[in-house]
Every structure is written in structure tokens, then in C-alpha cells.
Design a protein around this nucleic acid. Sequence first.
DNA 1: AGATGTGAATGAGTTCACAGCT
DNA 2: AGCTGTGAACTCATTCACATCT
Lengths: 226, 226
Amino acid sequence: MTTSGEVSPHTLHRLSIYLRCLRGLRDSNVLRVSSQDLADRFDLSAAQIRKDLAHFGEFGIRGVGYDVQHLTDRLRNLLGLDRHHPTIVVGVGNLGSALLRFLAMGDSAFRVVAAVDNDPSQVGTSLAGVRIEDAARLTEIATISGAEIGVLTVPASAAQANYNSLVLAGIRAVLNFAPIRLARDPDVVTRSVDLRMFFEELGFLLVRADSATVHATKTMSPGSGD
Amino acid sequence: MTTSGEVSPHTLHRLSIYLRCLRGLRDSNVLRVSSQDLADRFDLSAAQIRKDLAHFGEFGIRGVGYDVQHLTDRLRNLLGLDRHHPTIVVGVGNLGSALLRFLAMGDSAFRVVAAVDNDPSQVGTSLAGVRIEDAARLTEIATISGAEIGVLTVPASAAQANYNSLVLAGIRAVLNFAPIRLARDPDVVTRSVDLRMFFEELGFLLVRADSATVHATKTMSPGSGD
DNA sequence: AGATGTGAATGAGTTCACAGCT
DNA sequence: AGCTGTGAACTCATTCACATCT
């Protein structure tokens, strides 16, 4: 089955995990790996790995396994990491600058092409080689920079307005870190990440660990657990 | 059914979402809300909200709905947000200081009681009222600060060693932001968050949006989508 | 009347087990 | 012989529909 209908978010999430595992293997100069091998090393399920990959075609060699480099390339292609994704960072506070630097360094496919903030003392300065512009000009900046992805790292109160500005500039995707539910444009791929949730889940697990003896927590929770 | 066996990670994740919704309602001075009402406003499923809450007891009033304040309190209790969770931040780089400031401000249950870094120029300085200590003394600092939760925001290469130090200090939970699979202590609640994954998922969705016309993406992915 | 709480029905996701290729 | 790819069995999660309570 090749490039078929829908892909479950669980599968999608795991593709990232597989890719990370493969990067590790390649760094260790492992050339080939079987699904069982992968599963053992990173405690995943062998059958699940095969099922997940099967959504996108046949990558393996029967009787042998998967070529690490080849599978890596294919996953990078599936995740769009072999393309450029010009990215604009909106809000260069603590988290914004952390993400900006994070994306700027390394071989990231997500190149930061612009950044804005509404703090006048920040405007005009540079961060990791990116000049910070005035947030009031967001739509203009986003347009001329050709940004495809917008990273929203502004306070909740400003998130919706900045989101709208990005949409106006023809942005194609937004990753929102403000803890608010955005009114989304249907044509813009919009994902939200609320860092607070990770702490809250930890809090819950701690409370439970208090009362009962800790039970095996081997389920797959997105972004966590591995 | 009260405080029963296992809770699915999906349910757990949604508790955080519900709490955020309730905060919004309380800020708007809404006193009571029905599951249907909640579902409509935040596009969730009414039945699911009820099912999720049912795991922990009966919160609502039949024929009426839920008391916003009461349900908020109960959720905060479930998530352990009505307790103090002394927290230590390990690695005060960009992300570390972002999280430190994030936790330090507001009424967070996660009070930062200590922070360490291995950069000599950082040691001795303060950030959001927290003095930064030498990472070499991590176990000692973690112990005397009484930290319950450790936040790992160090490079992948240093993550395991620092994790071990935290375990040695008797830490109870760790939130790891380094993109590496940790060898975990079974007695320590350990969650990992890899920010890179959020970008990769976005990349994937963009690739798909390119070829086919965008299909409704209404599934629930952890940490995303709302 | 109106909304909760919950068993029953449906659907999604995972594991099993094996046919088929190398 | 060994490992992938995949239908079939199974488990987990969501939705339906209604009995129950205010």
C-alpha cells in the first residue's frame, strides 16, 4: 500500500521516534536493522513498526531487515525534512528565543528566516543571526520573508491577533505555544503545544505514585514516555 | 466508580485540557456548565467528558451540570496542582531559562527551588530569583533543596549523567527535554518531551497538504490539535 | 424537563501468526 | 533460515442511547 488515505496521529508520532532511533543507529555505524532489533533496543513493538511503515510502502528486504540509511532517507522524506521550511518566530521572549536558537543551529530543515517582537528594546537587535523586527509589521515581514511556518511564542492575549496576521500573510502552518484555543483558519495547518500540560501530567502521576504502589506505565502518550 | 485502577494517557491528557477550559470559563464568570456546553465551546465530545470524569467519581449535578469552581478544584486536586512540587532546573540554557521563568511566574504549583548549569560564567548569577549553582554539585543541590521534580534541559550528551545524579538525590519525577532515550529508574516517574517532534509532525502535515487537498484533521494528538 | 452517569454498540489501534519473498 | 508485509483476532477507546437523579 503506497501513500494511502489517512494516517493516524499515533503512527505519525511514532515516525519521529523511529527516525530518532535510526539517527542513533547510524551514528553507531549500524548498516542494517530488523524490526525486532529496533523494537528490542528502544522497547517498541516489532509488529507495530512494520505496520506503521507499511502505510507508506515497502522499505525492507525480506529475510534481511531494513537498510538504516535508506529508511532514514525515506522517513526524512515523509516528514518533509528533505525540504526547506522557512520559519518565522513570533515573540522572542524566553521560549521564542530558545526555539529560535534551537532551530538556527544544526542541520534543521526549519530555517528561521525572520523573527518579530513587540518589545521596542528588542527590535533591531539580532539573535542567532536573525534580525528582530517590529511585531506591528508582522504580516508584511511574514510575506516578504516567504515564511511557510509560523511559531507563536507570545502571551495568550496576543496569540489570536498574531495568528490572524500570519494567516493574512499566507502562512501554511502554525505551531502555537500560547495556552489558548485559537480560532483556526481551515487552510492553515495549526498545532498547539501547551508546555504546562507536561507538568500537569507529571503532577498527576506523582499523586498516584503516592497512594498506590507504582504500576507499570508502558502506554504510549504523545510526546512523552520514551 | 472512585479512584479506580488505571487511567489511560488519553484521559489524563484531556484532564489538562478540561482544566484549561474551566479556567477560561471561570475568568468569564461562568458559574455552571454542562458537558454539552463544554463540548460545544471547545469542540470536544460531551460523552467523552462525562466518561473521563466518571473515572474519578461523580462531580456533576444531574439535570443541572457541573459547578465550574467545584470541578476546577477537583481537577486541580487530581492533577496534584493543590500541592507544592519543589522543582529543580538542570541546565539553564535557552530552554532551561525559558522554563524556569515560566514556572517562576504565576501561581504555579511547580516552584523552582534550585537551578544548576555547567557554564562557569552562569554559576553564581540569578534568574527569576533563583541562584544558579554548579552542575557538578547537582546531587548535593538537589538533595538539600528538597526538589521533588527535576527538569532536564541539557544537551543530549549530558542528560543521562544528570538524570543519574537526580535519581541519586532521591528525586521523584523527571521531565526530560533532551532528545535522547534515558535509561530510567523504575521508581522515578520519567517523561520525555522532544520539541523537535512537533516540528517534524508539522513537516509531515505540510507535505501531505501539498499533494492531496487538505482533509479534515480532527483526531486527537497529544499536546496538539486543540 | 434536563443533564449526568453508564452499560451496550461501534470504531480505532495493536498484537498475533503466518504466507511469501530473499 | 530469517524477516518482512499483512489479514485476522484481539484489546483499547469513543460514541450511542437510555435509565437515573434533581
